[in-house]
Simulated scan of single mutants.
Amino acid sequence: QPAHPPQPSQPPPAYAPHHPHEQRFERRRIHINEYQRGADATAVGGLLLHVPNFLGSLLVVGLVSLLFGTLGLLLVLAWLASGALVFHRPTERALARYVLKLRPPTPMELARLDEAWREVITRAGIEEHTYELWVEDSDELNAVAAAGHIVGVTRFALEQLPSAQLAAVLAHELGHHVGGHSWSSLLGYWYALPGRIAWRVTQLLAYVIFRVSSAFSCLGGLGVLAFFGFAAFMTVSALYGLPLLLPVIPYLMAAVSRRAELHADRQAAALNFAPMLAEVLWRMHMTQEQTKAIAAAAGKPLPKESPLARLLSSHPDHHTRLHHLTPYLQPHPQPPI
Rank of each mutant, 00 (worst) to 15 (best):
residue 39 A to R: 09
residue 39 A to F: 14
residue 39 A to K: 07
residue 39 A to Y: 13
residue 39 A to S: 14
residue 40 D to C: 02
residue 40 D to A: 08
residue 41 A to Y: 00
residue 42 T to P: 00
residue 42 T to N: 07
residue 42 T to D: 01
residue 42 T to M: 04
residue 43 A to Y: 00
residue 45 G to E: 04
residue 45 G to S: 14
residue 46 G to N: 12
residue 46 G to R: 03
residue 46 G to H: 01
residue 46 G to D: 01
residue 46 G to C: 01
residue 47 L to I: 05
residue 47 L to E: 10
residue 47 L to Q: 12
residue 48 L to F: 11
residue 49 L to N: 02
residue 49 L to R: 04
residue 49 L to D: 00
residue 49 L to T: 01
residue 50 H to W: 14
residue 50 H to D: 13
residue 50 H to L: 11
residue 50 H to R: 13
residue 50 H to K: 09
residue 51 V to T: 12
residue 51 V to N: 07
residue 52 P to S: 02
residue 53 N to C: 14
residue 53 N to P: 02
residue 54 F to I: 15
residue 54 F to Q: 09
residue 54 F to N: 06
residue 54 F to W: 15
residue 54 F to H: 14
residue 55 L to A: 05
residue 55 L to T: 03
residue 55 L to V: 05
residue 55 L to E: 03
residue 55 L to D: 02
residue 56 G to Q: 07
residue 56 G to M: 12
residue 56 G to Y: 07
residue 58 L to P: 02
residue 58 L to R: 11
residue 58 L to Q: 09
residue 58 L to W: 08
residue 59 L to N: 06
residue 59 L to M: 15
residue 59 L to S: 12
residue 60 V to P: 08
residue 60 V to N: 10
residue 60 V to R: 10
residue 60 V to L: 08
residue 61 V to A: 11
residue 61 V to K: 11
residue 61 V to E: 03
residue 62 G to C: 12
residue 62 G to W: 03
residue 63 L to D: 00
residue 63 L to W: 00
residue 64 V to H: 04
residue 65 S to D: 01
residue 66 L to C: 07
residue 66 L to Q: 08
residue 66 L to T: 02
residue 67 L to Q: 01
residue 67 L to F: 07
residue 67 L to H: 03
residue 68 F to D: 04
residue 68 F to L: 14
residue 68 F to K: 01
residue 68 F to V: 04
residue 68 F to S: 05
residue 68 F to G: 06
residue 69 G to A: 07
residue 69 G to F: 09
residue 69 G to V: 09
residue 70 T to R: 11
residue 70 T to C: 04
residue 70 T to G: 04
residue 70 T to K: 07
residue 71 L to M: 10
residue 72 G to T: 03
residue 73 L to K: 11
residue 73 L to E: 08
residue 73 L to D: 05
residue 74 L to C: 07
residue 74 L to I: 06
residue 75 L to W: 01
residue 76 V to T: 03
residue 76 V to W: 01
residue 76 V to S: 02
residue 77 L to I: 12
residue 77 L to R: 11
residue 77 L to H: 04
residue 78 A to L: 13
residue 78 A to M: 12
residue 78 A to D: 01
residue 78 A to I: 06
residue 78 A to G: 04
residue 79 W to E: 00
residue 79 W to A: 13
residue 79 W to Y: 15
residue 80 L to F: 05
residue 80 L to P: 06
residue 80 L to S: 12
residue 81 A to V: 08
residue 81 A to W: 13
residue 81 A to N: 11
residue 82 S to E: 07
residue 82 S to I: 15
residue 82 S to D: 13
residue 82 S to G: 10
residue 83 G to L: 12
residue 84 A to Q: 15
residue 84 A to P: 10
residue 84 A to T: 14
residue 84 A to R: 15
residue 85 L to S: 10
residue 85 L to V: 10
residue 85 L to G: 09
residue 86 V to C: 15
residue 86 V to N: 14
residue 86 V to E: 09
residue 86 V to H: 03
residue 87 F to I: 08
residue 87 F to V: 11
residue 88 H to D: 12
residue 88 H to T: 00
residue 89 R to T: 11
residue 89 R to Q: 11
residue 89 R to K: 14
residue 89 R to N: 07
residue 89 R to V: 14
